[in-house]
Amino acid sequence: MLIQVDNLAKVYKGGRGLSQTGFSVDKGEFIAIVGHNGAGKSTLLKMLAGWIIPDSGEVFVDGLHLKNRLALVRKIGFVPESPNLFDFFSVQANLKLFARLFKLPLSRIEEILEEFDLLAYRHSKIQDLSKGLKQRVSIGRSLLADPPVLLFDEPSSGLDFEMTKEIYRLLRSSHAAGKTILFTSHRPEEIKSLATRILLLHQGEIIFDGPPKEYFLTKIHESLYA
């Protein structure tokens, strides 16, 4: 088992958030976390990424506790819904900063630029790029240290059809390369075409955990989004 989550909770003012959630993830799984806005999907991913400090609960990733952040950053790559890149710097400068902090050889930047088809944009400033390109840079940055687990918060949010296809291709190739992926989504076609397992969150609790086939057979998705 790669990820173990026990009684993880984070409650915001007004009662929303995530309450006492537990599940485990095996290596190589491709998990869609589904639910209404405010169901706790992003909160769950952000807690796994260390962006939000949980109120309670335990998380272990590859045997490392969530509190061991400095070691965990090499195990988890997180791609937020809005790319958090340094706008005034170029694509290459953004990747270089993170490569330096991870103490990676600069050749790794070339690999990422090539893999994500960003060579033509290496000197472009982030602020001049489209959202799709920014998302590609953001994914590339999260893969710099080659972490075994990738977390994507609404990976295709705000992207056009072509860019969405491109992001799906990148996600699939990362999964094929052996990465374990968790992503949040509202889109049934995205869930169907990518996920091998679905976690449905409702009002901060997991109410479904199973394969996509079973999920769509139960009509739970239609009733939830009706």
Partner: peptide, 8 residues
């Protein structure tokens, strides 16, 4: 938060 996803 992005920087805190690195080993600093």
């Amino acid at each position: 938060l992005g920087l805190l996803q690195t080993p600093i």
